[in-house]
Design a protein around this nucleic acid. Structure first.
Lengths: 193, 193, 193, 193
DNA sequence: CATGAATGAGTCTTCATTCAT
DNA sequence: TATGAATGAAGACTCATTCAT
């Protein structure tokens, strides 16, 4: 008997995931340009042609990956959505952020490598910017409330620090004690009171 | 009358520079993989074939660029070579490092994008690591002398912060006030005393 | 409806033949190095890229051609596989060998030209050597049984003669009466009794 | 003081030899197509440009090599120029021919590899044919005088045998006892009487 | 005469994408 | 839906040859 539309949708969704998983793994480990569609298809256990049934192009595929990661990231911020960041939420955010990197280094490696590729990926930057804008405001308020002199500067610095730590960890996981850095960052950028 | 060896050497040196300048610009702005040898040759105003009279391969070209930048970088560290870092030298180093980025963002964009490329460029990582090792030791000593609890951790954190700031500046120069960050970093990681 | 694996196999087999035929013709008539992949593709009526769907490289292509011919050649020797060569089988072998050359001069021209190419093709030589070893032994026994003084030398000489005749025929088919040479060779190297 | 025209001529001749020697070695050992002009120039200890002062093209260079070898070969035939071949002269010719191969295998390897290359070969073919024509006639007369049934066929066969032996020796010098074959060939194709 | 920088056409090869089945 | 054969544009690289000095 024929499948219901819902079943079809489920199958499609599952296949999409399958392809994206394979692609993420390969892109992150072997690079975007050195990973061919053929390889991805093989890793995903499907034919090259079918790939294009799910993604219009290689570029769309990588964009989907980035978008997906981005959405996960967005959920980390201000979980209770009340527009105010408490000291505990700040600490929680730092911890969660690093945990995310530890749990899924592959994705973040992809993110950074793409971010540094100039040209095509300005689009991604916009996506990230729009997500980060709200969080930025939250942080600025946070620092202002604590009497920090240059709240915007401090917020930017904090973001840069998170990026720098993440990047260094990804480049050299076994040499870089990410776990220990959680507290260091919270102490240095959380402003107790 | 044939050219003298010196004349040939001069031609070679000049052309090498010409090619490397064109390549650096393109690699940094459009990425390593999306920049073709054709494009570089055209930008350098020469024929494709001539490129290979100066560099054995595209990879050797990019490596030469990185090596060159590396050597410039190396000169920044511990200028008086006495094996000890003073507070002033620390400040000087921070300022100089950021100045280097401001003056030559192209190179640093290349550096970061290559660093995040997987696979081929482990060699570059080793080169950088060997250069940075000494500086790392200098920093550890610096923090130890100032009674910082976890000197190695602090040194690593400092490095990560420098990287993060640089990266954010490169991605968004007009939004990221690198100049103002000099003092911030010195205050936060210089440990007065 | 997708094609069945069998259909795909059929397509592949047919196309492989098509490419190999075109390549054999060109390699043999214009030489390995002077025949470009482009030319082969055009002669086979396909795109350049498709070539690489069937053969990993130009070298693999020529190797496949040689292997194929080799296998055909192998079937000529000692057809009844009893390990002994009779006088009739000897005569039969000479005749068949020359017939093979007459019927498929293209292949043999390729074979000789590759054999004289230095460097890469030592591998081919090994393949041929391993095939010819058994036949050589057969011949040595043959001559020994007939009381020839230096059986190994005679066998080697016979081989050289076959090569020389073949080569001369290939270089100048209309001037070289290969057909008449069958009897001559049989008389001179067959040792009646 | 300026050199005399004769001195210039001498220098030119010497340089030509130098280049030809280097080229012969490389062509024979690494193949015509895989040997670049650059390599030859370096091996000859001169610049690429100067090469073209002595040879108009790579092709002219290889042709010169072949011509030179051809002339040496021609001297082997009918040394006393009386238009008649004696039994001793026949034997002498066989011995001398093989000695030439033993003494200068490099040249002969080149000769054979070029001979099997189509295209270029046709040009050389005529040169060889014209040289060999006289010798051929000599041989035909030789066999006719000795009552051989098919003198022309026998002469052709003899030529093919010489080629075959030479080729086998060149391909596998240590396995192929060329020295011993002298007598064998003389016995088999010299027709005592 | 002598050099090697410079050219440009040509080579092999790769790969995202399309399409007949 | 699913396959992989087929395409074609592009890429890295080579090399005989020319030419300014």
């Amino acid at each position: 008997m024929p499948r219901t539309p819902e079943q079809f949708e489920k199958i499609r969704e599952k296949m999409r995931k399958q392809i994206m998983n394979a692609a993420l793994e390969l892109f992150a480990n072997e690079g975007y340009y050195t990973t061919s569609i053929s390889k991805i298809a093989k890793a995903a256990g499907i034919s090259k042609g079918l790939m294009y049934n799910y993604f219009d192009s290689k570029e769309e595929l990588v964009m989907s990956l980035l978008k997906e990661g981005l959405n996960k990231l967005a959920e980390l911020f201000d979980p209770n959505k009340d527009g105010v960041l408490t000291r505990d939420e700040f600490a929680f955010f730092v911890e969660k952020s690093f945990d995310a990197v530890i749990e899924n280094p592959t994705y973040w490696r992809l993110y950074f490598s793409i971010m540094m590729q100039v040209g095509i990926y300005d689009m991604v930057k916009e996506m990230y910017a729009s997500i980060l804008k709200d969080t930025m405001q939250l942080l600025v308020d946070y620092y202002q409330k604590r009497g920090v002199k240059d709240p915007l500067g401090e917020a930017l610095l904090f973001g840069a620090v998170m990026d720098g730590i993440t990047m260094n960890y990804l480049l050299n996981p076994e040499m870089f004690p990410l776990e220990e850095f959680k507290q260091k960052v919270i102490d240095k950028f959380g402003y107790k009171n």
